[in-house]
Write a protein that binds this DNA or RNA. Structure first.
Lengths: 202, 202
DNA sequence: CAGTGATACGACCGATCGTGCTTTTTTGCA
DNA sequence: TGCAAAAAAGCACGATCGGTCGTATCACTG
């Protein structure tokens, strides 16, 4: 099973390139060179550029699950778990060993007007991720840690905005305050959804 | 001044490509063909790919000013003007005749790990834009339409998150509720910064 | 009307793109 | 240890990339 090891190497270097340069930056020639392989040797593993891209996206998702979701799942269900996921979600890519940004976030803006399997795959990953966030928020609502009228979908939508703004300000603008801004925004979002105390409206 | 007309044509087609496929999607060959020009004829206008990209970014900024800022400036200074700008900012690209998304937003995620003049130019445009937003928010604060302790920078940061989330959900996910979500998020942001009534704290 | 500089052309450069083939090397097992 | 199968290399393809060349044509000015 030497093949498996090579595949791992390819995915590793491919993910680095994907993180740094986006999907259009992943090139068979460069990836082959980075992995010390010939282009045709690479082709033995992925029958096409498209299949390589799909595999890289899956690998990115796997990394995210391992570095964001799974460790956060040890927090108690409900609000603590939501907080834990958000905490690890923001800026997860560098912490997962990637030299660049979140490949999926970049793909959202790179493929917004494209068509084909790759776009659909990114869409599926994104929907799956938002579904996870929805379930976390819904749990916090169910446990009374967020108030019952919380609009879960809207909450998740705004949370994604915080993530994207954090990505832009941390990675592109290199604002050292990015983390603090994101936390402050998330806290405000939580406060809006805080359970009602003593029946105080709004 | 035939040259000027050709340049306008080039910028027009280039901006279409930029909006659809991002910076890496703008290609000298394709642009020349779209503008019914030879590659070398194109080179008479832009001495390099980089200069073309810079010119395209400037043109995008010009378009944004014309379609977003200038018309909104007719609204009264302060909160109404801020609202007018945000109203026209969200989804401005299609309304400005672009077939794709906002080129600057896409560039934020495409160039986050790059270097060079193009990246710096995008950064300058983005900083300029955020400066405009800051001044709008500050005006609303100065007029007492937002409360005095409003953290202007944080406000703008979260507003950018709303814009990015709107871009992702409207353009990539094609969620028809994107506009409504963005408006709801913006309203919540405004409510958080609403002037204090009757000395009610928080 | 002549002349000059801007504008655009077609051909072409080396490099690289994604993708096929065929051959060689390596691997894992009988 | 020998051998089939798998893995990688080698080579080549058509297309396209950004870019340069010399040349022709156009518009404007004197």
């Amino acid at each position: 099973m030497k093949s498996q090891a090579t595949r791992v190497t390819l995915l590793h270097h491919g993910l680095r390139a994907l993180s740094l340069d986006g999907l259009s930056g992943v090139t068979l020639g460069r990836l082959a060179e980075a992995a010390s392989l010939s282009k045709s040797g690479l082709f033995a593993h992925f029958r096409s550029k498209e299949q390589l891209e799909l595999a890289l996206l899956d690998e990115a998702a796997r990394l995210a699950r391992a570095h964001v979701v799974e460790p956060a799942m040890q927090a108690p269900d409900g609000l603590p778990r939501l907080r834990a996921v958000v905490e690890r979600w923001l800026g997860w890519a560098p912490r997962a060993g990637l030299p660049g940004g979140c490949p999926v976030a970049a793909a959202l803006f790179e493929l917004d007007d494209s068509t084909g399997r790759v776009r659909e795959h990114v869409a599926a990953l994104e929907c799956e991720w938002r579904g996870l966030l929805r379930s976390l928020v819904a749990s916090a609502v169910a446990q009374g840690q967020l108030h019952a009228e919380t609009e879960v979908e809207q909450f998740v939508w705004e949370l994604c905005g915080i993530y994207l703004s954090h990505h832009a300000s941390a990675r592109f603008l290199r604002d050292p305050a990015a983390d603090a801004r994101a936390h402050q925004a998330f806290d405000a979002l939580l406060r809006r959804a805080a359970p009602v105390i003593r029946g105080l409206p709004q």
